[in-house]
Amino acid sequence: MAAHRPGRGRTDRAPENVLPLDTARECFVLLVAGPQPLSLDGRAFRGLPHRTIPLDELRDRLLRRNCPRRTRDAVWAHLVHRSRREGATWTLACAGMALPALAGVARRLAEGFPGDPFDVHAEVLTGFLGALETVDVARPRVLPRLRWAAYRQGFAALMEALDAPTPAAPGFRSAAPRPPWGHPDLVLARAVRESVLTRTEADVIGATRLDKVAVEDWAAQRHTTPNAAYKLRRRAEARLIAFLHGEAQDNDPNDPVALSAMGGLPSVSALPARRNAVSALAGSSPSVVDIGGSRVPDRAEESSIGVAKKGADSGLLRCGSTTPASTSLPASEVP
């Protein structure tokens, strides 16, 4: 009999059972197997062959770098409409077409998830399926926005799991690395628990720095302006860097892991003069506006090199280990 694992109200499962995305993959394989695979007419979409194209072949074509974005958006708009009109078969088809993106999201979130990976996989798939009902197909980048919805729900499950009490057992046991080192998602989650960041601030850093979502897209999702989003991120990153420096002072000065990680952080002195470690952690400002429950400064501040708007070496990615690839989409389509 399988050992009980605490979950979200689900029953015990045998260890050999597959994860939700594996089930989606198996269903998709059945849809495109046999002499009459589920297909689309390529003549309806510019840039595709003028013939019937099975969905597995179509997915491969859409993932190619030379596939025009307009073609991808047109195909995904059609798939979403079919899912809404015809239900189960085309909903499964959508999940199968999005599997490369969803698998990357689930893999990344599962690395920091303290519970059963089944739960975070299920949340990612649920977020994607829920977005199929609401996503605006008239706007560009349909699949990246579906993927972003899946990430948001999976990340919420990760935060909830990390907020839960950790069982303690007597005797010797392994321990997590001392903060602030580790996977960037765990660093953000710890900062939220310590009230250094709000969930919205952790969201904008995780989305735009780690998940490569354009700041403009993130701002549109939150119904705010890109300039306000940049200010929100800059302020949050200043507090986060000060927090990590403060945490590092409590570690062994000869710890090679700490020394290596701290080498990638900008110094507190490199932050704007009025945002030192004390004022950064205080996190209050006499003049702010509210965006989704978070505070945003009313004017732009000078950004340090470590938290610049642009650049592959900017922001939180310079702390800790390298973030794994999160999608198999072409680079231009990663949100």
Rank of each mutant, 00 (worst) to 15 (best):
L38I: 11
L38E: 11
S39M: 11
S39K: 07
S39Q: 10
S39N: 13
D41K: 03
D41A: 10
G42S: 11
G42I: 02
R43P: 05
A44W: 00
A44G: 08
G47T: 09
L48A: 04
L48R: 02
H50I: 00
H50D: 15
R51L: 01
R51M: 08
R51I: 06
T52L: 15
P54D: 03
L55K: 01
D56H: 07
D56N: 12
E57Y: 12
L58V: 12
D60E: 14
D60L: 15
L62S: 06
L62H: 02
L63I: 06
R64P: 03
R64N: 10
R65L: 08
R65Q: 09
R65N: 09
R65C: 07
N66Q: 09
N66E: 15
C67K: 01
C67V: 13
P68C: 03
R69K: 03
R70D: 10
R70M: 06
R70P: 07
T71G: 02
T71K: 00
T71L: 01
T71S: 06
D73R: 03
D73C: 00
D73S: 09
D73F: 03
A74C: 07
A74N: 05
V75M: 03
V75L: 06
W76M: 10
W76F: 10
W76A: 07
A77R: 11
H78I: 03
H78F: 12
H78Y: 14
L79E: 02
L79M: 15
H81L: 12
H81G: 12
R82D: 12
R82I: 02
R82L: 14
R82T: 12
S83A: 15
S83L: 00
R84M: 03
R85G: 08
E86R: 14
G87P: 00
A88T: 11
A88Y: 12
T89S: 05
T89A: 07
T89V: 07
W90S: 01
W90L: 01
W90D: 08
L92V: 14
L92Y: 12
A93H: 06
C94T: 14
C94E: 09
A95E: 02
G96F: 00
G96R: 00
M97Q: 11
M97K: 08
M97H: 05
M97S: 07
A98W: 01
A98P: 08
L99W: 05
L99N: 01
L99M: 10
L99S: 07
A101N: 00
A101Q: 01
L102T: 10
A103N: 12
A103W: 05
A103S: 13
G104T: 09
G104F: 04
R107Y: 11
R107E: 15
R107P: 02
R108T: 15
R108K: 10
R108E: 14
A110G: 14
E111M: 13
E111W: 04
E111T: 15
E111A: 14
E111Q: 14
G112D: 08
G112Y: 08
G112F: 06
G112M: 05
F113T: 01
F113H: 13
F113R: 03
F113W: 11
G115T: 14
D116F: 09
P117A: 11
F118G: 11
D119M: 04
V120K: 05
V120G: 03
H121L: 05
A122M: 12
E123L: 14
V124P: 07
V124E: 05
T126F: 12
T126C: 13
G127K: 00
G127F: 04
F128N: 06
F128S: 04
L129Y: 06
A131I: 10
E133S: 15
T134F: 06
T134I: 10
T134D: 09
